[in-house]
């Protein structure tokens, strides 16, 4: 276990000694604010809640999470430190978990720093803070799913740019999969059962429920399963790369 925490600490620390963390935080916080107030009709809705704020999160994560995860493994491979890491008494799954937790904690910190919007909504009205808390937890879980996907893409290549694009593409597809337009498009070609399944694997369907502040067990299971599956895939990819 000391291996997981040591790697997590090192990774988290490395975000903050390079400009990555600060650039990311500034962009994330500015975008979250701008999108909520302009695109999300925060005022005109006349409701004291944070739904417009959480509605924007999947799209923010789509662009920003790949930027955090792209270097996670690709850089280790490119700079040769992967050899050092794998010669340490740490299993591949421990290393994957450590790095994942670091990125997840980092996004968590960014989410916490959006607290002014929570203060704002409490100042303006009388929102249901339980719903808001659920929204935050759900958003963080969704970020975890994005990070797990990014982790896997980063293990597959030594190029950070490829890792970024692959992650963004996969996340985009998973977001799109649940959109009515996409489901309608497949309406005639695929049996209804498959349409239902397509809708279920989509991130946006589960994200919508979360944005409303509903923490359904099925959504939680969905995000946890996504995280576990993509992290397991990362371990498999890293292990496969040892053999060829």
């Amino acid at each position: 276990m000391s291996g997981v925490t040591a790697i997590m600490r090192r990774e988290l620390w490395s975000y903050f000694v390079t400009p990555v963390a600060y650039v990311f935080m500034v962009i994330f916080l500015v975008m979250a604010g701008v999108l909520t107030f302009y695109t999300g009709d925060f005022y005109d809705r006349g409701l004291a809640d944070l739904q417009p704020f959480f509605d924007m999160h999947p799209w923010l994560y789509l662009v920003l999470v790949p930027a955090v995860t792209m270097s996670m493994w690709a850089e280790e491979r490119a700079s040769g430190t992967l050899e050092l890491l794998f010669s340490l008494p740490v299993s591949i799954s421990q290393a994957v978990l450590g790095k994942f937790l670091a990125a997840w904690a980092f996004i968590g910190i960014c989410l916490l720093l959006t607290f002014p919007i929570w203060i704002t909504v409490n100042y303006l009205g009388d929102p249901d803070n339980g719903v808001i808390l659920a929204g935050y937890v759900g958003s963080w879980l969704m970020a975890g799913a994005f990070i797990a996907i990014g982790t896997c893409m980063s293990t597959a290549t030594r190029s950070q740019i490829i890792a970024f694009i692959l992650t963004a593409a996969v996340c985009f597809l998973l977001l799109l999969a649940g959109q009515p337009q996409v489901l309608d498009f497949f309406q005639d070609a695929v049996p209804p059962r498959a349409i239902g399944a397509l809708g279920q694997i989509s991130i946006s369907r589960h994200a919508n429920a979360i944005a409303r502040g509903v923490l359904d067990l099925r959504d939680l299971v969905y995000f946890f399963a996504t995280i576990v599956a993509w992290l397991a895939a990362s371990v498999v990819v890293l292990d496969l790369k040892r053999t060829r």
Partner: peptide, 11 residues
């Protein structure tokens, strides 16, 4: 000690 002594440059 791997070839080229790789280590984390930012530390």
């Amino acid at each position: 000690l791997p070839e080229g002594a790789p280590s984390y440059g930012e530390m």
